[in-house]
């Protein structure tokens, strides 16, 4: 296989697209881990439900955009339910392992629920007709054909991430959230209510992961284990980026997706995935707090 400039450019655009989707899932997980100190093994559930809710919504009323919005709302509702029914109760008991095991349980229950309702075979989610087809670029004498849907994803996910960044750096609620992550005791002593912010961020994290599941549905297929399969990579991203860091999560998402997209030009999928986990181990050895993480966040 010859490595044309077109192919490399296409793969870089794919990397950007995938990285932005990863970042949407990872940012919620990273914030919740940093804020509440819990390892949310059920975060993949929101991604899973986001995709299936969209499948269901589109079959009921064929409008993809509406489906995505419904999925986002339902996912934040489910996130709130998980938070109030399980996490708040278990956090009161101060046994982190219990929470982790309970969340793995929630993950299994949700997966089986999906398998029972929708069946085990993959579902097909169509690209909305408005966004199907290709766009042709002319860039420095190179002609590039790129799917319109992927390009829209880059714009939509990118805008959402900019919004999230803005929220955490420019609004009082966001700044207080970051303060809690960096030094919980002092933020509390300054009057910040961790229960209120935890609830809010859990709901936002669920909604955003749901949106990315919905948007990724037409590209990757929709199947019951899609959440837990992706969660491994999301954890790698969160740890490499630094738990609780927005910028770190964005950077690590793009790094991992670039390694995945460009790596497959040179090696098999399995080798590339293995390399990512090697990278994780190296990171844990030389810089356990990640690219942009703070010391002592997960004590």
């Amino acid at each position: 296989m010859s490595l044309g400039i077109e192919l490399i450019l296409t793969q870089l655009l794919n990397a950007l697209c995938m990285g932005l989707i990863f970042a949407l899932i990872a940012v919620g997980l990273s914030i919740i881990m940093g804020l509440l100190g819990i390892v949310n093994m059920a975060h993949g559930v929101f991604y899973l439900f986001g995709a299936y809710f969209t499948v269901a919504a589109v079959s009921w009323y064929p409008n993809f955009g509406l489906g995505v919005i419904i999925a986002a709302l339902l996912c934040s509702g489910i996130a709130l339910a998980v938070f109030f029914l399980f996490i708040r109760y278990l956090m009161g008991r101060r046994r982190p392992l219990e929470i982790m095991v309970a969340l793995i349980g929630i993950n299994i229950i949700c997966e089986e629920l999906i398998r029972n309702i929708f069946g085990a075979e993959p579902k097909y989610l169509a690209i909305p007709s408005m966004l199907s087809g290709q766009v042709t670029f002319n860039f420095l004498g190179v002609t590039l054909m790129y799917p319109k849907y992927y390009l829209s994803l880059i714009i939509i996910c990118g805008s959402l991430l900019i919004l999230i960044y803005y929220f955490f750096h420019k609004t009082d609620l966001g700044i207080r959230g970051l303060a809690l992550i960096q030094d919980r005791e002092i933020a509390l002593a300054l009057g910040v209510n961790i229960a209120k912010l935890g609830t809010l961020f859990f709901a936002i994290g669920g909604a955003v992961a749901g949106i990315s599941g919905a948007l990724a549905g037409p590209i990757f297929s929709v199947y019951p284990t899609m959440g837990i399969e992706l969660l491994g990579f999301i954890f790698v991203i969160v740890i490499i980026g630094g738990v609780g860091s927005i910028e770190g999560t964005f950077l690590a998402s793009l790094l991992i997706s670039t390694i995945k997209s460009v790596g497959v030009l040179f090696a098999s999928n399995v080798v590339v995935d293995a390399f990512i986990y090697v990278l994780l181990c190296v990171m844990l050895c030389i810089r356990p707090r990640g690219l942009k993480g703070y010391l002592g966040v997960l004590e």
């Binding site: 700044i175 207080r176 005791e185 002593a189 300054l190 209510n193």
Partner: peptide, 25 residues
């Protein structure tokens, strides 16, 4: 009641003005 803690414990990853936006009142 407001606390200025031992070892300063400012929020290192926030700017000066962001640090001052943290207190709720």
């Amino acid at each position: 009641i407001s606390l200025c803690p031992q070892g300063r414990r400012i929020f290192p990853g926030l700017s000066v003005i962001q640090n001052l936006r943290v207190p709720v009142f």
